[in-house]
């Protein structure tokens, strides 16, 4: 296949994105090249605009064109409840579900001694400062159910204890609409452990 240099560069850049290999990148580029006016130039403009305008919120770490972000500025939000997430993707997931009406705090990762990610690499100090200064009533730890996620949750619980704030974690167990017989043993065990009065 002969790909001229700008095409090859574009394919190479797109292929760096999560979820895209070189094959899908090439397909996307071909599609765009067939309609440069309709697809490519608007995309280029949108990329430039987003790159220049979007920045992390100085309060919670969410991505927005303004800082503080729209969620932090929203007066209808419950200011006493802060939901701690690993990354912005998790924040978006919770927002899509519209299940959390409080504020967020994006950690920027989870603790990983093997991966060289320590407490100083995460937005933990700002979280402690926020909780202390704004007098939050509850911190919800919405972290992944992995060893690193659980370690980070345990660490945060420990560091938040002196502030007296109520710290909660997401439940683990049977998914909504899920049958029991297809669940793996680990999830079933978590569900049985976390059972509650009906």
């Amino acid at each position: 296949m002969s790909e001229s240099e700008p095409i090859e560069r574009l394919v190479g850049l797109l292929a760096k994105l999560p979820g895209l290999g070189r094959r899908s990148a090439r397909r996307a580029v071909l599609r765009m090249l067939m309609q440069p006016e309709a697809l490519m130039l608007p995309l280029a403009a949108a990329l430039r605009e987003a790159a220049e305008a979007v920045r992390p919120c100085a309060v919670c770490g969410n991505l927005d064109t303004r800082s503080p972000c729209a969620i932090c500025r929203d007066p209808r939000r419950e200011r006493g409840v802060i939901c701690v997430v690993e990354g912005v993707a998790d924040l978006w997931a919770l927002e899509r579900a519209q299940v959390h009406r409080g504020l967020y705090h994006v950690l920027g990762g989870t603790l990983s001694a093997l991966g060289g990610v320590g407490p100083e690499d995460l937005a933990i100090r700002p979280l402690l400062a926020r909780v202390a200064e704004d007098g939050a009533e509850e911190v919800i730890l919405a972290l992944p159910a992995t060893v690193d996620g659980a370690t980070t949750a345990h660490y945060l619980t420990d560091r938040l204890r002196p502030t007296g704030v109520r710290v909660t974690r997401l439940a683990q167990g049977v998914p909504v609409g899920g049958a029991l017989d297809v669940l793996d043993e680990g999830t079933l065990a978590a569900a049985v452990k976390a059972r509650r009065p009906a």
Partner: peptide, 10 residues
Amino acid sequence: TAWLAALEDA
């Protein structure tokens, strides 16, 4: 110690 305790908990 908080990080160590978290790993020891796991």
